[in-house]
Design a protein around this nucleic acid. Sequence first.
DNA 1: TAAATTGGTTTATATTGTAAACCTATTTAT
DNA 2: ATAAATAGGTTTACAATATAAACCAATTTA
Lengths: 93, 93
Amino acid sequence: MFKPLDPLLHSQLRLAVMSLLISVEEAEFTFLKEKTESTAGNLSVQLDKLEKAGYLEIEKSFRGKRPLTTCKITKKGIQAFEAYVDNLKNYIQ
Amino acid sequence: MFKPLDPLLHSQLRLAVMSLLISVEEAEFTFLKEKTESTAGNLSVQLDKLEKAGYLEIEKSFRGKRPLTTCKITKKGIQAFEAYVDNLKNYIQ
DNA sequence: TAAATTGGTTTATATTGTAAACCTATTTAT
DNA sequence: ATAAATAGGTTTACAATATAAACCAATTTA
């Protein structure tokens, strides 16, 4: 009936990040920050967790002279997101 | 875009409880415990929070000689649940 | 050359979730 | 009659989590 909800995804900010990345495939740190209206610190921590879980890949580079952090959802991340949504439906329907 | 998710509802156990109460209107502690597969301690704490938020009413009585705790969702609880689900849809669609 | 801005990370703290321990009473077994 | 198990919870201690504040290094602007 109520299957457990992946704790990594059952978090407002991380879920928003995954939701964005599902649709855009790849996004910059600043883009995610704006869209989610989060603080940089909070976002940084949550991105780390998602990366450590293998739900996304984080690439650090430079754009001109500025650091640039780019995030991309992984196959595992997509699957986890879909499973989470499926399970969640049992709670909200 | 991503509206904040009511933290009181964005919790696996509390959401499961509300989900159950939405459909059955009224339920006993032990019923909720079984359906959610939670421990009594955890359930007790979470019910308290939902009651303090005015999302449900808790009535304590006796069935025969045994204590009986009955929970009923309130109008406010229903509204909060519906708002939560609406907001959540922005994250998972 | 000082101050502000960009693009973040680290860390300290407050909040939360959860299980373990506990409590009171009742029922069952010996 | 008494001990042990069960019912129906509550309280509390601890671990995990989320978040903002503080920080850092470099760049740009005044």
